[in-house]
Simulated assay, not measured.
Amino acid sequence: MGLKGAETRDRLLDATQELLEAGGYPGAGLNQVIAASGAPRGSLYFHFPGGKDQLVGESVRRAGRAIGGDLKGLADSSTSVAGFVEAVLRHLGERLEESGWRKGCPVATVALETASTNDPLQEACSEVYGSWEAALRERLAGRTDADDLAVTVLALVEGALLLARTHRSKEPLDRVARQIGVLLG
């Protein structure tokens, strides 16, 4: 694929992610993606012959890798697990607030809307969550309860993001950060 084709594909994925985070799966219709990306309709079908589910699945995976990269950077710069999780919550809170409370978790809305009815999108969401759990588990290495703690911390982060978005306040993230600090010792 040439540079122009890659740029068009990226614009389609960027537009899809913005629409997914703002309006969920129903808010990311193909017409909306085309309008938001400025890409020709034919490009959408060229790059995503599997249609909306392929586009959304790739968008979720791409957003998951981006957040995963953020997690890696924060893990490398944190000296403790609690400090790492606090930095993650602060980063996600800033992302959420800067977006006008529109950008919570780039996976959660799609997972909630489609996991029980759409196997390809359920798999995409599960892959992303699995990669985030692995990043947390890696940071918790050496603890006998690392698997359980990784899932617990991820669930607390996801819940805090939902509450922060709902209340339009970073306070739930701050509270969860304090409690994770206690949980992790």
Rank of each mutant, 00 (worst) to 15 (best):
G73Q: 12
L140S: 07
E98D: 12
S59G: 15
E18C: 10
D10R: 03
G27W: 12
S43C: 13
G83Y: 02
C125D: 08
L149N: 08
V153P: 10
V182S: 10
R102H: 11
L140K: 05
A141Q: 07
L3S: 14
G69I: 02
K170W: 04
E94I: 14
T8Y: 01
S116T: 06
S80C: 06
R90P: 04
S37R: 09
G29Q: 12
S169L: 06
G93E: 02
R178H: 14
T16I: 02
D148F: 04
S59M: 06
A87W: 13
E7N: 04
G23E: 11
R65Y: 00
A22E: 14
R139M: 03
V107S: 08
R62S: 13
D53F: 00
S37K: 04
R139Y: 07
I180L: 13
E171Y: 05
A177D: 01
A134S: 14
C105S: 14
Q32D: 13
A87P: 11
A146S: 09
G42P: 01
E138R: 12
L136Y: 07
R102V: 02
L173W: 01
A111L: 14
Y25M: 09
A164R: 02
N31P: 00
L12Q: 08
E98I: 00
L3G: 12
A36W: 01
K170G: 07
A135N: 03
V182Y: 04
G23F: 07
E97I: 02
A164P: 00
A124W: 04
F84E: 05
E158N: 05
A146L: 09
V128E: 03
Q17N: 06
L55Q: 03
A15M: 09
S78T: 06
A108Y: 11
Q122A: 15
R41W: 01
G57N: 09
L163S: 15
G5W: 00
R95C: 09
D145G: 11
